[in-house]
């Protein structure tokens, strides 16, 4: 008879759709960047509205604090506007913005890691009020996963967050962090392995 214990993987390629083609927005971004450089404030407001929320979440994950993330992203945009004539962006505006936000977050993180405040911040971040509808086991797993991610080596953690929660492609991550695609993949594997190990008591019970 058939062995029914094995699980089946669905072929999700079908559902995958046209994600790939989204990179075409790189072109429109560059056109709008040219206008911004020429002083088009309206175009700048469009750019801001397009990327503010995603950059905010991206920064927030790194530094685990909403209001700091807001400040970082605002700073990046303000500086971009003020120094627009001096900045040379010829390849990809989106990657450039992520890079700026990433660098600023990292600097901040380094400063904070020197102080004790860092540990406390992690706790504050975890205290987010649970919504009543969510069941507690789910919530517990969520917390455990979050803690396990926080324990990853910094580079590893960044890459996991970017891949999983920012849903970036490997090439995008590589471009933003200025490393090779292979390194990104190696780090992803490392992240998954550590998470598995760290969470195994949680998952197997």
């Amino acid at each position: 008879m058939l062995n029914f214990t094995f699980e089946i993987l669905a072929d999700l390629t079908l559902i995958r759709s046209l994600e790939e083609s989204k990179d075409a927005s790189g072109e429109t971004d560059l056109i709008s960047w040219r206008k911004i450089r020429a002083g088009d404030a309206k175009e700048f407001s469009f750019l801001f509205k397009k990327y503010y929320a995603v950059l905010y979440r991206f920064a927030g994950r790194f530094i685990k604090d909403g209001s700091t993330a807001e400040n970082i992203v605002q700073n990046v945009f303000v500086n971009l506007w003020i120094e627009k004539e001096r900045r040379n962006i010829e390849t990809n505006l989106k990657a450039y913005l992520y890079q700026m936000v990433h660098n600023q977050s990292l600097n901040l993180l380094k400063q904070e890691q020197k102080s004790i405040a860092y540990e406390e911040k992690t706790l504050v971040y975890h205290k987010t009020a649970p919504s009543p509808e969510e069941n507690t086991a789910e919530k517990e797993l969520q917390l455990a996963v979050q803690r396990a991610i926080d324990k990853l080596p910094e580079r590893c953690r960044q890459i996991y967050l970017m891949k999983r929660y920012d849903q970036m492609k490997y090439a995008e991550i590589a471009r933003i962090l200025n490393i090779s695609v292979n390194t990104v993949k190696t780090q992803m594997k490392r992240a998954l392995k550590s998470l598995l190990q760290e969470l195994s008591p949680f998952l197997n019970c």
Binding site: Y125, H126, L141, V145, L195, S200, L203
Partner: peptide, 11 residues
């Protein structure tokens, strides 16, 4: 297990 971890939404 990997699937479970992966599917966990962020806080």
């Amino acid at each position: 297990n990997i699937q479970k971890i992966w599917n966990t939404p962020e806080i």
